[in-house]
């Protein structure tokens, strides 16, 4: 029992830190979207923010956020914030992604990361997983969209908060968050 108490006392003084090796800046990359159009991050150097969203067609967690992702893009596109979806899952085809995007009313482009090159560069591992960059490609926010797959249970709208802070010219107060999600299925 004394051992447990000592452990609990010690644990009370441990503050969970950010990810070890958290990416601070992203190198430019170019990928084709599902319609064959090439997109580069440097196309958006004048944007107030670039929101990269690693998403999936088959992951139930990612799918739970379909409406919220579409709404985010609708709410912020007119405020100079660019949304880009990235699909790095090996088993999800371009045709499937195109159909999924149409069905869910995604207006943002979805890039197919065939060889996980971008997922590897950013060390993305889960869907949905968000990176918010500035025009210089510095990472301003990395993590979840919000804190619950079930929208009525959301108490912390982390991505919206980060975007509002960026628009207000403030530093992002919580730059890293985590949540559960589906593993990105990489090529072997």
């Amino acid at each position: 029992m004394a051992r447990i108490l000592l452990f609990l006392i010690a644990a009370a003084f441990i503050v969970p830190g950010a990810f070890a090796g958290e990416i601070k800046k992203v190198d430019n990359f170019s990928l084709d979207d599902v319609h064959g159009k090439k997109h580069s991050l440097t196309d958006h150097k004048d944007a107030k923010a670039i929101v990269l969203m690693f998403i999936a067609t088959q992951c139930p967690v990612s799918n739970a956020y379909n409406e919220r992702m579409a709404a985010l893009e609708r709410d912020y596109a007119s405020k100079d914030i660019v949304f880009i979806g990235i699909n790095s899952n090996k088993q999800e085809s371009v045709e499937e992604i195109k159909e999924h995007a149409e069905k869910n009313g995604f207006r943002f482009p979805i890039l197919k990361d065939h060889k996980n090159i971008v997922a590897d560069k950013l060390e993305a591992s889960v869907t949905p997983e968000i990176y918010v960059l500035n025009g210089s490609l510095d990472v301003l926010y990395h993590g979840r969209i919000d804190d619950s797959q079930r929208e009525p249970k959301v108490s912390s709208k982390d991505l919206r908060t980060a975007l509002e802070e960026i628009l207000a010219g403030k530093p992002v107060s919580t730059a890293t968050t985590k949540s559960f999600g589906c593993t990105i299925k990489r090529v072997d």
Binding site: G21, S125, K178, S179, G181, T183
Partner: peptide
């Protein structure tokens, strides 16, 4: 996630 391993992304 942090209680188990702070470096774990949460992917399952």
């Amino acid at each position: 996630i942090n209680a188990l391993q702070a470096e774990w992304s949460g992917a399952i």
